[in-house]
Simulated assay, not measured.
Amino acid sequence: MTTTVARKNSSERQRFGTTTYSIDFTNNNDQFTAEIYNAVTVSDTVVLETLYLSKEVKTLQVQNSSAILENNTSEIYFQMGMALAFIGFGSFFLRKAYYTNKNYRYIIIVSLISFFSLIRIITLNC
């Protein structure tokens, strides 16, 4: 996807001492590493490689440059943790004997969605 940088924003969290670097494009936005944040300026034309469903930026290339910058913000670990937490809680609650059939269906559906989400996250990022 070819787009232009509309706005750059960095915010620092005093509590944890971390800085978040956000770049807004004309039709997308995402968080990036400091290297990518410093490599682009507002109104630069860039080529983005995005994931199909989540529109998460995987790589970024400034149009006049041959360097391809990979976006590695470690969001994958949070997403995998959430999927594993839902699967873990689902398997824990399935062991209880006092739920109705409707409750069991909800637990199984959430666990299956989490399982397929985990598979999707692993296949898209590896």
Rank of each mutant, 00 (worst) to 15 (best):
D24N: 12
A39P: 11
K58L: 08
R105Y: 02
A34T: 04
D30R: 06
D30Y: 07
E35S: 11
L118S: 05
E12A: 09
M80K: 11
T18F: 11
I109L: 09
L48S: 04
T41G: 14
K96Y: 10
F115H: 01
Q31K: 07
Y52S: 09
T19S: 04
K55G: 00
F78Q: 06
I36Q: 12
L69K: 00
L60M: 04
I23M: 12
L69H: 08
G90W: 05
S117T: 09
R15A: 15
S117A: 08
V47D: 02
G88W: 13
L69M: 12
R105M: 10
K96S: 14
A97L: 13
Y77T: 07
D30C: 01
L60N: 02
F32E: 06
A97T: 08
I76R: 01
S66E: 15
I68D: 04
R95P: 01
N71F: 08
M82P: 06
Q61N: 12
I122C: 02
L118H: 02
N101Y: 05
F93W: 14
I113Y: 13
E49Y: 00
N9F: 15
D30M: 10
S114N: 13
R15K: 15
S65A: 05
K58C: 00
V42M: 11
R105P: 06
F25T: 03
E75A: 10
M80P: 05
L69D: 07
L48Y: 06
K96M: 11
Y104P: 02
K102Q: 15
E70P: 12
L48T: 05
Y37H: 11
Q31D: 10
Q61K: 14
I107C: 04
R120W: 05
I36W: 03
S54V: 02
G81I: 00
I109G: 02
V62Y: 05
K58F: 04
I119M: 05
Y21H: 13
T41I: 02
A85Y: 05
G88P: 02
I109V: 14
L60G: 03
G88D: 02
R120L: 03
N72K: 14
I109W: 03
T100A: 12
N71Q: 03
T19K: 15
R95M: 14
G81H: 01
S10M: 10
R105T: 12
K58I: 08
K102L: 11
A67C: 04
A97W: 09
